[in-house]
Design a protein around this nucleic acid. Sequence first.
DNA 1: AAGCCTACCTGTTGGC
DNA 2: TGCCAACAGGTAGGCT
Length: 277
Amino acid sequence: MPELPEVEVTRRGVAPHLEDRIVEDVVLRREGLRWPFPPNLRELLAGRRILGTGRRGKYLLLTFEHGTLIVHLGMSGHLRVLPEGIELKKHDHFDLVVRGPEGRRVLRLHDPRRFGAVLWHDHDDGELEQHVLLRGLGVEPLEDKFSGALLHQATRNRSAPIKQVLLAGDIVVGVGNIYACESLFRAGINPKTAAGKISRARYDKLAEAIRDILAAAIVQGGSTLRDFIAVNGQSGYFQQTYFVYDRAGVPCRNCGTPVRQIKQGQRSTFYCAVCQR
DNA sequence: AAGCCTACCTGTTGGC
DNA sequence: TGCCAACAGGTAGGCT
């Protein structure tokens, strides 16, 4: 589910309910997800004020004075903000209960496949950016540092296909399977092309495509394919604007040639063999 | 070091 | 309708 736009939509959704609120309770309903939950989370957070929210790649960050709560939604996770007393659903694993002007609110993490994570980074343990999960991440695609020049320079020694290099996340973060396919279509680049063989001019186009597509997806509330919903329960709409993703055999919106589906590194790739060379 | 593969899970879908 | 295999948006970690 959640690539960068969905995580950013989630962050923007939860932010007004969390910022400057005091945590009153933490409820853990299992040992953990991908990794164990910090067992002392309630002691760490109860009575503490949430100073702000952030995002690094697909990691959602809740900042406290003494540390940062790191939340990852994995493939199937979503967060909702609910009034107290809403009935639990299967796979509701974690609640953060906060008090605000409108009373108590519950931030509830739902994650059927349990590839998500909730971790704590204590400020005594050094810089957040040096956290083991964050330190290897590439640049943020919506920040100024991201450019065709950066993509070009960073890929000179990469022989892997551009699609897989984008997904790897060590050069640029947040571009998952959907947005990698869509961006390569927009830039007219065949996903199988070796990353190191793509020209600077084509990378300029790709960087622009990634930026534009991610930004547009955020405006649309992200993509709702199977189960993504925003904090308020609304679906995203970006999937209606897909050019290639999930459209195998359907005529290309640009040239009419049927969209192809192939496997790259066990993941589906969708592309137009005519528009993408 | 790049690049490939596996593993972690449940839910949905499509073929028979 | 039921059964089963294949597949799904992410990514760390282990191997070559």
